[in-house]
């Protein structure tokens, strides 16, 4: 009996905290789905409307922004998966001079990440004429120390006997990588992909610096350009645009909630 009461009490506290925590987001949702006159004015039976979303969608080239983000994410993800796999494979399966030193050099990126080096990376990019291109946004992120670290940890758990058996069967370096190492690391690839996609979907500062024209802007930069309130855009439109640009991630999260949380845990624990 006392136990039940305890449970009810903690459950109430938890739900209360969850409600408070959700307030800023819910307030934004409320405004996005109602007419401007209800934005600071709670009338329970205020009519719901999708008008704000249509208006925001037409006020700025969001379809283009989405496409740009999609291209950016794809370039980064494919490059990361391929390049990190190659490097991790070299470190796990082979020995070579300076390998420890080289690995330490690579791990420097975990700390001194591209966000910190915006000044010099911008100069490099303008020297090679890649300012204002999607590839230019992607360049500093094409190899990831985090991905290399994660895959190296995983590849080290591949049983040596499997590798040797494949070699006896006459498999070369590439067959061994493709048929033994890669399949065994599948969950890690998935986890890494989720983290990478959400990171690059959300990335803002570097794309903001690199892009000038709408043709290459990712959604985050597009949203910030649209939502500069000094330009006189209504709050309901800003909120609709904010929700719209994050909706794919939110929907994906609600559908894959369990896997997402599990994968974040796996990817985060080094």
């Amino acid at each position: 009996m006392k136990n039940d009461l305890n449970k009810i009490m903690w459950s109430t506290i938890g739900l209360l905290l969850a409600a408070v925590w959700g307030l800023p987001f819910l307030y934004s949702v409320w405004t996005a789905f109602h007419d401007e006159i209800y934005s600071a004015n709670f009338v329970l039976n205020a009519p719901l409307t999708l008008e704000n979303f249509f208006e925001a969608w037409q006020a700025a080239p969001f379809a283009l922004y989405f496409l740009n983000t999609l291209i950016l994410i794809t370039i980064v993800l494919v490059a990361n998966l391929v390049l990190c796999t190659l490097v991790a494979y070299a470190f796990v399966r082979y020995r070579f001079r300076w390998s420890g030193f080289l690995f330490a050099l690579i791990m420097v990126q975990l700390l001194v990440s591209p966000e910190i080096l915006i000044v010099e990376n911008y100069l490099t990019l303008s020297r090679i004429g890649m300012i204002d291109t999607i590839l230019g946004i992607a360049l500093p992120y094409l190899t990831s120390a985090f991905g290399i670290f994660l895959l190296r940890q995983t590849f080290m758990t591949v049983p040596v006997s499997l590798d040797e058996a494949a070699q006896i069967e006459g498999a070369g370096a590439w067959r061994v990588l493709w048929n033994i190492y890669v399949p065994l690391a599948k969950p890690i690839y998935l986890a890494y992909a989720l983290v990478s996609i959400s990171f690059h979907w959300n990335n803002f500062l570097w794309p903001l610096i690199v892009t000038n024209s709408p043709e290459v802007r990712p959604v985050t930069v597009g949203l910030s350009v649209f939502a500069t309130v000094e330009s006189g855009v209504e709050w309901s439109l800003v909120n609709a645009a904010t929700l719209m640009t994050t909706a794919p991630l939110i929907i994906a999260f609600i559908i894959f909630q369990r896997q997402f949380v599990a994968n974040f845990m796996r990817a985060g624990i080094k």
Binding site: S11, L15, W21, F25, Y27, T31, F204, T246, V261
Partner: peptide
């Protein structure tokens, strides 16, 4: 506890949002 999935959703949601969206939400 009862209501756990609602709590998890509410607590974790802000992490999923881009910082720029979070900024807009809080600006409002």
């Amino acid at each position: 506890l009862p209501g756990t999935s609602l709590m998890r959703l509410s607590f974790f949601m802000p992490t999923m949002l881009p910082m720029i969206a979070v900024a807009n939400i809080w600006l409002f």
